[in-house]
Amino acid sequence: MKNEKIARLIGEAKLLKNYDDRAGGASDEEIASLEMDFGITLPNDYKYFLSNFGFASWFGGGVQGLPDDNYRFKKYSAVNLNTIHHVKSYEKENYLPVPKFGLVINTYDGGGYYFLFSKESERAGEVGLFLTETYGQEVSKFKSFTDYLSFLVTGAPDPEPVDVDYDKIMDIIED
């Protein structure tokens, strides 16, 4: 099933400096294995992205996914490696853990990560930004992976702000 909006957005991203993706995308078996490894069911728009592009990167942006095994920047582009890294990093005292149902699909350069909620979550399909400076609290969100990709490529739509518990942050700092 073709996802016209994602195909159009990737078409625009391909015009950006140093664009790269996985020619032919990831196989259905690789996507199923990713879901099985994390015990999740991915949203359809992200599955479409994986099966057609694998991952996407360009100067100053991108989305992690399933690069082929020989890709030289695999450790920066592989969603499974990135998710495992962030789960371990946020096991620190006072940090909120990475949510259970989904994947870390990108890092935030200021410190943090973008998390795609899987179908098992009450927030299925949403993408949230969780920051280290808020001790792992979410600060903004997108309604879907497609909206998140659109934001990266076109600058719209803006993410929705999420209420941050600043009292909790002050309690952590004062301890």
Rank of each mutant, 00 (worst) to 15 (best):
L131E: 08
Y166H: 05
E126D: 08
V162D: 08
S144N: 07
A78L: 15
R72T: 12
N70F: 13
V104E: 09
K168L: 06
A78T: 15
K92M: 06
N82Q: 10
L129S: 10
Y113T: 01
V162I: 14
S150Q: 11
K141I: 10
E138K: 11
E126M: 11
D165Q: 08
V98K: 01
T83K: 12
G102M: 10
N106E: 13
G128Y: 03
V104L: 04
R123H: 12
L129P: 07
L96T: 04
Y76N: 11
F151Q: 08
I169C: 03
V153R: 13
S77Y: 09
K141N: 05
Y90I: 11
F151W: 09
L116M: 08
E160D: 13
V153F: 03
D69R: 14
R123G: 00
D147A: 14
H85Q: 07
D165N: 14
D163F: 06
N106V: 00
N82E: 08
E91T: 14
G128R: 04
A78I: 10
R72G: 11
G102W: 03
K100V: 07
Y166I: 05
S89H: 09
D171C: 11
F142C: 05
K92G: 07
Y135P: 10
G111Y: 01
I172Y: 01
V104W: 00
L116C: 05
E126W: 00
G155H: 09
M170H: 13
L131C: 09
F117V: 02
T107L: 12
E120G: 00
L129K: 07
V127R: 02
L103P: 00
E138N: 06
D158K: 15
M170E: 12
I172V: 14
L96N: 08
P97V: 08
S121D: 06
V164C: 06
D165G: 04
A78R: 14
V139I: 12
P159V: 07
E160W: 04
Q137S: 15
K143H: 07
Q137I: 05
F101R: 09
S118Y: 01
L116A: 07
V153W: 05
P157F: 06
